[in-house]
Simulated scan of single mutants.
Amino acid sequence: MHLTIELPNRSETLASNRERWAEVLADRELAVHGYRVETNAFGQVIMTPPAGGPHSSRQSQIAYWLQNRRGGRGLVECPISTSDGVRAADVGWYSVERYAHVRGQLAFELAPEICVEVESPRNTELELRIKRQLYFDAGAQECWQCDLEGRMSYYLSTDPETKRNQSTLCPDFPNTIED
């Protein structure tokens, strides 16, 4: 069996995500749960339990390193408007120039140059691969992955399926992030 899914065009998707994300952010019931909140292509809310200590530590260290060494904006829980709803990259890094294009948006309609996923025990490789593709489709140049042991791997928009040992935008980024 072959399944074909036709998605709305990018401008329709952005408008829908913009409207739905504003509703999600205004929903006081969602705020009390403490879960990570994202949406899918249908505007349905996806809730994930909060991250554990090692995940949070690595997330903060990556954001700090990027902002401290590269300037721009290192953002934690970075909301990105994708073709499959609003997804939150664990870390997003925007250059000063690119951030000027998204400043003030509730969900960023142009992905950061770098999107980082810090793995949790519940993540699957398929889920991480899909998120990378969504981020690339939204304009990311690189997607990074930090595994459960803190080891980094890098993917480029020009070759999204090939795992690399080094970033092209930040070749001096550490290979391992301690928790």
Rank of each mutant, 00 (worst) to 15 (best):
G53S: 15
S57M: 11
D159M: 06
S57A: 15
N175M: 11
N68Y: 09
T82Q: 13
V118A: 10
D27A: 02
G72F: 04
G139N: 08
W93I: 08
L126S: 13
I46V: 12
Y135H: 06
T39E: 13
A26K: 08
F108T: 06
P174W: 02
L75F: 03
P79R: 03
D172N: 06
R70E: 14
A89G: 06
I177H: 02
A107H: 07
E125P: 01
E23C: 04
L156Q: 15
F108I: 05
T4A: 13
L134K: 04
R73Y: 13
Y64S: 13
E77R: 00
A41F: 02
E97I: 00
G74A: 11
C115F: 00
D27L: 10
P79C: 11
L110N: 03
A41Q: 14
E113D: 08
I130Q: 14
E113N: 02
P79E: 14
R73D: 14
S57K: 10
R151G: 05
E178C: 03
M47G: 10
Q133Y: 08
R103H: 12
I177M: 10
V45S: 12
L128N: 13
Y155I: 10
T168C: 14
V37L: 12
E12V: 04
A89H: 01
E149N: 11
A63R: 01
N9K: 07
I130V: 12
C170H: 05
W93M: 13
Q59R: 11
H101F: 08
E142H: 02
T39F: 04
C146V: 12
R98Y: 01
R73T: 07
R132C: 11
F173I: 15
C170W: 04
P79N: 08
A15H: 01
S167C: 04
L30H: 05
A138S: 13
P50E: 11
R129V: 11
S81H: 03
T124S: 15
S120C: 09
F42K: 15
E77T: 01
R73V: 12
Q67V: 03
R151E: 15
T4W: 07
W144K: 07
M1R: 09
R69P: 00
E77M: 00
R103E: 15
